[in-house]
Design a protein around this nucleic acid. Structure first.
Length: 672
DNA sequence: CGGCCTCGAGTTCC
DNA sequence: CTCGAGGCCG
């Protein structure tokens, strides 16, 4: 780069960084992720390192520790706020305990009795609160540990933080974490979205931005919470252990997490850390680890501090939920209806405790937007959920001049080789071949899943297709026990079991069959609605578009699409075949408006003790109830089983009644 | 016409 | 679970 360009680039970077830094800190509303931000900052640092003459005092690189410019008053902490060493696994945790023993042995304390306290490490921000004579005097952010910022005006808006303390000493410093709970975060974002405002990226940013607002009225509108976790400087108060301190805090009304406990051995500590890790996803706040402290203050004092870290505490860090890995290739697969979907083949990498090799890329637009290229490093994320996602190129690759070519949309179907088409109105390029084996495989596996055929999974479908035993879903019902038993890995018994499962699926209601055969726009709900509306497959097939349009939940667009697909001879013959094979192609359930539970909407969540989701759905639908997937205020009941997640929380927040399996049965019995 | 609500579809790992 | 799009209600 010629010098003039370098200078221009440096200026550009400074402007961008300042802009994003303001978005983040002042407007509390970042447009880009931390990684992207860091990439900008790193590029600027690199430029400035190579060309020191470009460094200006105002450059973002010159701010101490990358702290943002701010009008908040700087305050020196009475006692430095320390950081923590990390342990990533049990070996490192045991090594920490051993280090403490060794250290104390050298200090002449042999065989000390260790008691520990393990607390969740909340992803919020650390705050120090000073109470003088029981009155909250000041709240300060951690800052760099030595100097923080005075945020007392915002601290006072947090209801969980007492203004006054009973039986308080002359001086006490309370430390804890200010955070935004996940429900509050979701609610805030919902309100913001409704008001046409941009939404926040994550609870931590949201909390950090809120606490640093200059105007407390803004902070008051944003729900913040608090957990206390330490007593710092005191005058006129004597405590002997961390646990005592926590009790003392609890007695004065500070929130202490109820599951924090004293542990007597490192084995218990490890078990506790692992337990927290397991609970991680079901807590109503984000945690990124567990803080383990030695309980006894005298031992803490003896152990002291090394650098900025106390020897007597450690943070058990959970595996990161993002990782950088190489994108090996982008592949394409046809879906049920021929749309080609790109997915990423990745160099296997550990993210959030599992190894990720594949990740969906959704569609071409998504692929283009992310600008990821095979051969380059990418950031892989496994958010609170389970599904891996490719987020973006790794920060450093975008700076490269000679990047590999972006992946190309295939000109021919990767499975059957038919030239692809891209309809005007679709984001997808598609394989137009209705007989494409890839497409048929998707249809058949989906059919097996929708019809709830036990044991008929992806592998078996593949095998049946290879042997050419199965071309359409109807062929499943033509399989014979002997035939299946002849397969490797199958015996007489397992073959009979599979055939029985296939037979059993014949009892699935008409609506479910309509869903299973693979009609675009027709899922569980629309299938059931069509079945109720038309009663028989003949009536449905004879129906003009206008009649289909009359179905609740179906409008003109869907009606046209459904009508066109039903006219397809292949679809007609499939439905015909299925009928002659004994599947239900007439509605036996109640007509619309009939049935004891008609007009009521149910949502199932979690695992019920004895019923499968499909069974419960069928039982409800038999009474005319509608079963949908998402909770809203129109939902009549949520049926919650074990490990129910966000839907249960939503039901509670909306005041929707929640049933367990017994409650459901009672309701169904009452309806008979 | 605008804005919620709902549905469908695809998807990973163990 | 999340996204986008279509339907429906005010």
């Amino acid at each position: 780069m010629p010098p003039s360009e370098i200078e221009a680039r440096a200026r550009e970077l400074r402007e961008q960084i300042d802009y994003h830094s303001r978005r983040y800190y002042e407007h509390d509303d970042p447009e880009i992720g931390d990684d992207e931000y860091d990439a900008l900052l790193n590029e600027l640092r690199a430029l400035e390192a190579a060309h020191p003459e470009l460094v200006t005092p105002q450059s973002p690189t010159q701010r101490v520790g990358g702290e943002p410019v701010s009008d908040l008053v700087k305050v020196r902490h009475l006692q430095r706020m320390l950081s923590l060493a990390n342990a990533h696994n049990r070996e490192e945790l045991l090594a920490w305990v051993q280090r403490m023993r060794n250290y104390l042995a050298r200090e002449g304390i042999a065989e000390p009795r260790f008691r520990f306290v393990a607390e969740p490490k909340i992803d919020g921000l650390a705050i120090s609160l000073i109470y003088r004579d029981g009155v909250l005097e000041r709240g300060t952010t951690r800052g760099n540990g030595e100097i923080g910022e005075d945020v007392t005006h915002n601290i006072r808006t947090i209801g969980q933080i007492p203004e006054r303390l009973d039986q308080a000493p002359a001086l006490v410093e309370v430390r804890g974490e200010v955070y935004m709970s996940l429900p509050d975060f979701a609610g805030l974002n919902e309100r913001r979205a409704a008001a046409g405002l941009s939404t926040f990226m994550n609870p931590r940013n949201s909390a950090a931005g809120t606490i640093r607002q200059l105007d407390p009225r803004l902070a008051a509108e944003r729900p913040l919470s608090f957990w206390a976790y330490q007593v710092g400087v005191t005058e006129g108060l004597e405590l002997h252990s961390h646990w005592d301190a926590l009790q003392w805090l609890a007695e004065r009304g500070f929130p202490i997490h109820p599951d924090v406990k004293v542990l007597d051995s490192e084995t218990e500590v490890i078990a506790q850390c692992e337990a927290w890790e397991e609970r991680r996803g079901s807590l109503e706040f984000e945690i990124d680890g567990v803080v383990v402290k030695l309980d006894d203050y005298e031992l803490q004092r003896r152990l002291g501090v090394v650098g900025r870290e106390p020897r007597w505490a450690i943070a058990w860090k959970f595996p990161p939920t993002t990782a950088v890995t190489r994108l090996r290739a982008v592949h394409w697969n046809p879906g049920k209806f021929g749309d080609l979907h790109p997915y990423a083949e990745l160099e296997p990498v550990q993210v959030g405790g599992v190894t990720i090799k594949l990740a969906t890329l959704h569609n071409e637009e998504d692929l283009e937007r992310k600008d990821i290229r095979p051969g380059e490093e990418v950031i892989v994320l496994r958010a609170g959920d389970v599904i891996p996602q490719v987020v973006s190129p790794a920060p450093h690759v975008a700076e490269r001049g000679d990047r590999p070519d972006p992946p190309k949309v295939p000109a021919a179907c990767p499975v059957c080789g038919t030239p692809t088409e891209k309809p005007e109105d679709s984001v997808f390029t598609r394989c137009p071949n209705h007989d494409c084996p890839g497409r048929r495989w998707q249809l058949l596996t989906s059919f097996a899943a929708v019809m709830d055929i036990d044991g008929l999974g992806e592998k078996l479908v593949t095998k049946f297709m290879e042997l050419d035993w199965v071309r359409t879903a109807a062929d499943f019902y033509r399989l014979e026990t002997d035939q299946v038993a002849s397969l490797e890995g199958f015996g007489e018994k397992s073959a009979a079991k599979l055939i029985a499962a296939i037979e059993a699926s014949k009892r699935q209601p008409f609506g479910r069959v309509l869903f299973a055969v693979g009609i675009e726009e027709v899922g569980n709900v629309t299938g059931t609605a069509l079945a109720q509306q038309f009663r028989t497959v003949d009536a449905l097939l004879a129906a003009p578009v206008e009649a289909i349009d009359e179905t609740p939940g179906v409008g003109p667009k869907m009606a046209a699409k459904i009508h066109r697909q039903l006219a397809d001879p292949a679809m007609r013959s499939l439905l015909d075949d299925l009928r002659s094979l004994g599947l239900a192609l007439e509605e036996e359930g109640p007509a619309p408006g009939e049935g004891a539970l008609s007009g009521q909407t149910f949502v199932l969540t979690g695992t019920l003790p004895t019923l499968t989701r499909e069974e419960a759905t069928a039982m409800l639908q038999a009474q005319g109830a509608k079963v949908t997937g998402s909770v809203s205020k129109k939902t009549s009941y949520v049926v919650a089983g074990d490990s129910a997640g966000s839907k249960l929380a939503k039901a509670e927040s909306l005041g929707v009644p929640v049933l367990d399996e017994d409650g459901l049965r009672a309701l169904l019995d009452g309806a008979d």
